[in-house]
Amino acid sequence: MADKILKKEDLAKLIASVTGKGGRFVAPTTAARQIVFKKVSKAEEIAPDYILARNSFKEFLFPQTEVIAEFTVCKDTVDMRGVEVEAPETVVFGARPCEAASLAGMRALFTWDFVDEFFTKRDDNTVVITVGCTKGDEACFCTSVNLSPESTEGADVYMRETEDGGYAVQALTDKGKKFVAAHAAVFSEGSAKARALFMPEKVPGVDLKKISERLKDKSHYDNPVWKKLAMKCIGCGACTFVCPTCRCFDITDEGTAFEGERRKNWDSCQYDSFTLHASGHNPREHQPQRWRNRFMCKFNFYPEKFNSKGCVGCGRCIRVCPVRLDITDVMQEFSK
């Protein structure tokens, strides 16, 4: 049940309250005629009516590129300096329940024995506010991966749009409760009628248990179906960049031979260079092998290794794919 109400006119106050304390307020806004998560400073910038942003908010926890060290080559040595992570207090407003559910997997991965503080420090300083979906499209399939517009996984605060244009607010985690308390003046007591949620239809025949079982059986590896489904993939990697759970990266040096920085950059398992050895050998030489890896990462590695969801059903990969490769077709195929 909702604890508080955020009135329509008070959203501006919430932004001011967050930014006034030095925080950054990230929300879906319009840029180049697309809805994208960006830092906003005014309520008017927030897209009034959207399904979900084209990018996921992962880039505010795991940026597309970030400096991890700087170096200067001196006469007798190298001056190597680690950099401190920039982790401003951040509020992600208007995340969808699907993408918020990606956080468990990201957290497991970035803290698996070795703790990547570039991720954890940003994560610690980020409050995720999800807003239940009142509209969707044909690419939405959260209900086929055991999620729904009502799911609260990964959310610190869950909100429902109300009929009068405001929000019914529910603080879930300690971080969420602290957030609501810290900005108490902005929230009101009371109740309001919530707008109806949009429930995507389940993809016919999809059975996650069956997919998991089929992927555990090694014989699927040479199944000609991979070729049939994934041969049209052009390896552009767009699906991996918009995916909220994809987190593969490269480490490269930028600069000259004398001075520069070491960076962590997003990378994609869909690129042939991703696994290419310097010798010329490539364990995942063909596109269907790379596609198989992506599908297994979502439906086998994340669930089995990190006890979390690898696919949250947001449908971004379906929307951006230039060759209309639809992950739900593969899910159906492996549900047989």
Binding site: D116, D267, C269
Partner: peptide, 17 residues
């Protein structure tokens, strides 16, 4: 295998799972 991070994060050295 090819590796970038060496610590289980970057995602490329996996052989299956």
């Amino acid at each position: 295998n090819k590796m970038k991070c060496g610590v289980g994060k970057c995602g490329r050295c996996n052989v299956g799972d």
